[in-house]
Every structure is written in C-alpha cells, then in structure tokens.
Design a protein around this nucleic acid. Structure first.
Lengths: 151, 151
DNA sequence: GCTTGTTAGTTACATTTACAACCAATAGTT
DNA sequence: AACTATTGGTTGTAAATGTAACTAACAAGC
C-alpha cells in the first residue's frame, strides 16, 4: 500500500547501510562481548593497538574517528582488565602511550582470528569483484563529510 | 609501525561498514534533528509510515528490524508531537493502527525531499554500476543472520 | 467457565552514550 | 615571568538504549 512515489526505505543509503552495519556488528560482538566482556569501543581500541602497535589515545581518536571521551573510557576499562599499559611521555606529560600487555596481545590475537574468519564468511556471500567495489564505496562514504566529527 | 600481519581495520567489514553508516547517519540526522527535534528511531518510524502508509507498531518492528521497545517509545514521541494518530482495532484491541496526521505528512514530505537529495549526493560519488553493486551487497549483508534480532 | 499459552505493546531499571565542563601540561605572546 | 590559547585527557550529568519484567487482549484446550 504505497502512499507517495518518494522512495523505499530500502533504497535510502543511510538506512540500508545502517541495517547492514548493525547486522554485522551485533553478530560479531558476540565474540568480544561473550568471551571477554568487552564493549564495542573497547574492542576497537584493542584492535587498533593490536594492528598498529603502541600509540596515544589521541591517535586512536583520529584513526578510528572516535570521540575522545569514548576512547578515554574504553582505555580505562581495558586498563582495569590488564589488557594495556599506559606510559607517560617525558617530553610532554599530557600524552600517554598505550601498549598492549602480553594478556592484551593474546586476546587480540584470538579475536583477530575470529574477525578474520567472520570477514571471510561475509565475503563468501559475494564475488571478489563485488567485494572490491563494496570496499571502495564504503571507504569513499566513510570519508564523506567526516571532517568535523573526529574531535 | 605494524605489529602483526593480521589485517588492517580498514579491511574488516563490520568496522568499515560502521564507519560509513555512522558518517551518513550523523550527517543526515541534522535534518530531522535540527528541524524537528526528532531522534533516529522516530525518523525511521515516520519514514515507514510515510512510505508505506498506515500500519501497526509490530509491522514497523518487522519491516525496520527494530526492537518493539524502541518503536514503542518512538511512537509515543511522535504522538506527543502530533505527527501520528493511533486507532485501536475493534477485532483485536491489542493492535493499534498508526497513521500520520496532516502535520506528520508534511514533515515526512519535507524530510523525504531532503533524504532524496542527500541520497543523490552520496550516489554522485560513485558510478551507477558501483551504486547497484553496493546496494545489492548491503541488502545481502543486512539479511545476514538477522533472524533473531527482530523481536 | 477456567487454565495455559501467545501476542502487541508498555514500563522499570541498568548500561551506554553524548555533551559540556573541567583539569593539567604545553605553546605562544608580550 | 605573566597571560592567554590550545591540547590531551578525564569526569559529571542528562539523554538514549537494551533487557527483562510486566499488562492486557486474545486463543486454545479442557
């Protein structure tokens, strides 16, 4: 029973994208949440530190486009869990370099494997060409007007 | 400074998808939030009613893959704003059919135009072929393991 | 009719998030 | 040195969300 000829929610990109993102996030959160009681932002922070090595909270904010308060609380939680250490820089004591502990590393390695498997599983639902294009489009969209939101 | 050869967050689909979805949602929310003080779920409910015509809250839950509490609260808010009416069914008084008021219709029409323009703007960043494939992939992903989350 | 089960929708409470104000360290200016 | 601005990071509080428990209406079995 259509009303207007406007358009279908299914064709509205923000809506569709949200549905897809939500579906994957909810599915994957079972791994980090179920196994390690981690929240989404915590997983993201761990992921960044695991992939790129030690860095400051600020760097995580910029790379991950996360607000500093979110990162701050995630870091605190990961610190409580003994997944990372914080080391103040002597030349500028505002900064603290974050680094995964051996335990944090193990957790990262474990979840990283899950992530890889999960990713493959999703990609299996499309052809390599489709996956490439999807990736390209998402990157482009993610960069879209995202300047003012990193801080 | 790479640590492991695992993979880049940028290649992890849930992550990338989330970034893209977040970017678009945050951008578009300025319209419904700024103009009408609406929340995301409220906009979605309005959108559904506007596109498909009157329906019950339950139908919105199923179509939009939204939890019933979210819909319940959004409907209450839209009702307070006089954007919709609720009419109990006589044959089953558990159901209430929701319908946009004239005011709600106007708001929908207005936002719908914005949505269309916004959508075109995003699509302009890709070729028609890319848009088609993106759409197809997202639909497929949104359906992915999404059974248990509609209720 | 009464009991049990199911369904549509709401409410209560705990968790999470957003936003703004804040603190401490540094940089820049005079 | 003193004064302001900026930056990295934290904390307080209000708003939003998720989860579970709940109500009310119906349906089915007895």
């Amino acid at each position: 029973m259509r009303r207007d000829s406007e358009f279908d929610p299914q064709d509205f990109l923000p809506y569709l994208l949200n549905q897809a993102a939500e579906a994957l996030s909810l599915e994957f959160q079972r791994h980090y949440r179920g196994q390690y009681g981690m929240l989404r932002t915590e997983w993201r922070v761990l992921f960044h530190l695991g992939c790129y090595g030690e860095m400051t909270a600020k760097e995580i904010c910029v790379r991950g486009r996360l607000h500093k308060t979110k990162v701050s609380r995630a870091v605190a939680a990961l610190h409580r869990k003994r997944f990372l250490t914080r080391r103040e820089l002597e030349r500028d004591r505002r900064h603290a370099v974050l680094q995964l502990t051996a335990l944090g590393q193990r957790v990262f390695t474990d979840l990283s494997r899950d992530a890889h498997a999960f990713d493959s599983e999703v990609r299996a639902a499309m052809t390599p060409d489709e996956a490439t294009i999807l990736h390209r489009c998402l990157i482009r969209i993610a960069r879209f007007e995202a300047a003012q939101r990193t801080e």
